[in-house]
Design a protein around this nucleic acid. Structure first.
Lengths: 224, 224
DNA sequence: CCTGATAATATTGTATACGATTTTGTTGAA
DNA sequence: TTCAACAAAATCGTATACAATATTATCAGG
């Protein structure tokens, strides 16, 4: 994206990575205030860096900003989760369809390898599963040949690493791996339509499953 | 989006509208430099306002910004046009599918009315046609029930009003109106799948037509 | 006249300072 | 006690000032 970075921008990205992690790991809970001067102090960075980072997080939907009131971790609602998953599933599905055409042999090998690792995984190792899952989709995004689409997907994909999203994962891993296998098979046959449909349902399915799970297990009040 | 606006933000939006118009009307040509202090003077607004506006235009893909070199109108390439149309067609198609479910009767009437006006239009009146076209899609975006999706689409839709994009319009109006009619029919039947597919092809088709047109008529050098 | 080096100018990047707004704390009357 | 009114403090928003960088102009040597 940015060919050359200034020191300022590098600092912003550092803060960005840190804050994302703090938010989606659950260290910062929804509605928690993010005071600029505090953050500036704790990251030993100027307040402008923090402001820039917060503005970016706003576009990712992770924080809300109100004039003169400041930033806070965005509250999560079933509605916002659905909105995100819908967008992500559509974009990622489309990207996969595009990738079916231009996929290089080494990319396909890479995907097969990822799926194999996933199948061999300890069913409780959610963290590693999440990493492999990310790798899988990242590979496809790169291969789709639409740079702008890739950037867009990445922005929305941060969402899926939210702390509570992992809650529903253990029961999904087996299903997920099967779906990945089907996607790889479709890509191998260069069946763009099928690959696209599979991924779309794959992601939206994960979303639906998650939302059901949340409705049952979440203490009221955290969700919106 | 923004519940409350500060005076600063209002000024930013004013500049934003003006600059978008200047760019996509052709007043500012690709690669033209956008010097902050000049713009600040001509809009009688602080330089910070300009900077904020330029940053936003960057996310819309209308301008490029390089550190210490400043902003310039983004050069257009066939590739970037294709990327934009792909994204837009997918998102708008999906939104239409969603809208099929939740469309209110008055929205449907509204759409029918727009199409009727379009059919009665003087084939040379590209400006009015563009306006109606925008109305048509805006109505659908609002009815889709996914706020975030609507925002996203709007960001990418600015692109389609680029000055040279209108060049290919006259030969397209008849086709376009027919396609709109088909979409309305699908919506009336609440056939989400069909509405989605129609819109997707509708927009991507417009994109393909445009790109063919540009390859033939554009003086080399303006395109990238 | 060209070319490279250097100085002068123009332009952008950002830390700082200060005004605007919200939030918190205090006080006194009902 | 509870509440409203006001004051004080905290926090945010942004214009300004200056530093960093890029661009243009100048000029000496070939």
């Amino acid at each position: 994206m940015a060919e050359k970075k200034t020191a300022f921008q590098a600092e912003v990205e550092k803060v960005l990575r840190a804050l994302r992690k703090e938010i989606y790991s659950g260290l910062r809970l929804p509605r928690e205030r993010l005071v600029e001067s505090d953050l500036a102090l704790s990251f030993s960075v100027s307040r402008m860096v923090i402001r820039q980072a917060l503005a970016t997080l706003k576009t990712e939907g992770l924080v809300e900003i109100a004039p003169y009131k400041g930033a806070s971790v965005a509250p999560i609602s079933i509605k916002s989760i659905r909105e995100n998953y819908q967008i992500l599933s559509v974009l990622e599905g489309f990207a996969t369809g595009l990738a079916a055409a231009g996929l290089r042999p080494e990319d396909l090998d890479n995907l097969k390898n990822i799926v194999k690792q996933q199948r061999a995984l300890d069913p409780g190792d959610v963290k590693e599963w999440q990493r492999l899952n990310q790798d899988f989709h990242r590979t496809i995004e790169k291969a789709c040949g639409n740079r702008r689409l890739g950037e867009l997907i990445r922005r929305y994909a941060y969402f899926t690493t939210y702390w509570f999203l992992a809650l529903s994962a253990p029961g999904r891993i087996a299903v997920n791996v099967k779906e990945h296998e089907a996607v790889v098979k479709a890509l191998e046959k260069k069946d763009a339509e099928k690959a696209r449909a599979l991924v779309e349902r794959h992601i939206m399915g994960a979303g639906e499953h998650l939302m059901e799970h949340l409705k049952l297990t979440m203490p009221m009040g955290i969700l919106q």
